[in-house]
Nucleic acid binder design. Structure first.
Lengths: 130, 130
DNA sequence: CGGAATCCTGCCTGATACTG
DNA sequence: CAGTATCAGGCAGGATTCCG
């Protein structure tokens, strides 16, 4: 990669996340757990309530906001199915598909390190209590 | 791919993010922008106020909470430097270092797609207004 | 079914002051 | 310096209800 901007590469230098770094406004939009989980679920087109069931714990209000935001950012599409009762199916755009990869690696990381993290939590809590 | 657990791999099937998926409690802890930015900044050991300056926009309250949470999850260490005035330096643990990779890919994604996302936002807003 | 509207609570923000 | 404490005000999120 031929660095054309101070933000071209991650790691190494100290300009990471400066106030004007172009990563900031985007991270504000997508770097939250519900966005990540929704994107992952949408690897196959899915309807609203099905997404809601998968993301157990999310409220319909927050899920709606999340899907709207993802749609506005060009990551998913919203298609109304004129049945009765009505259906709405969400699906990834090519842009959204390209995001699944980084998110997937993060997902895989959590699976791989779940035990270690739980252990660390136990240690910390024991130290705090003692 | 030899799936040993229903959660062994990302993508493909439909069990993603079931209520008992071990990814959930961890994502709750780390899948937020401040955690991600803090971890990235801490690729080199950094003191509190320096981190705060890098993560422009964060309040000291939220940053403290974020660092505590990362420390509890075994991702960073907190070292008090007995100078006067006192100093506190945060640094990555090996666990935290292993997280930098996935986060870095996400960071690189935002840099690479910043323009496309901005364009999508403009389109969406224009459609909404029209 | 999908979502908008409503109300209500509570945490976050932002500012400021205080401690070791 | 690195927090904790406090308080005002605002906005996010939960629960519920209603509509196409």
């Amino acid at each position: 990669m031929t660095d054309t901007s101070p933000y071209a590469a991650h790691g190494g230098d100290g300009v990471l996340f400066a106030a004007d770094c172009p990563s900031r406004p985007i991270l504000d939009q997508i770097a939250d757990k519900w966005s990540m989980m929704a994107l992952s679920v949408l690897q196959q087109p899915t309807r609203f309530n099905e997404i809601k069931r998968r993301l157990s714990g999310v409220t319909q209000r927050v899920l709606t906001q999340t899907l709207r935001r993802l749609e506005r950012n060009g990551m998913i599409t919203r298609r109304v199915i004129p049945t009765s009762p009505i259906g709405v199916e969400y699906a990834l755009t090519p842009l959204g598909e390209s995001l699944v990869e980084p998110f997937g690696e993060l997902y895989d990381w959590t699976i791989a390190h779940a035990d270690i993290v739980r252990e660390a939590q136990g240690d910390y809590d024991a130290r705090s209590a003692g």
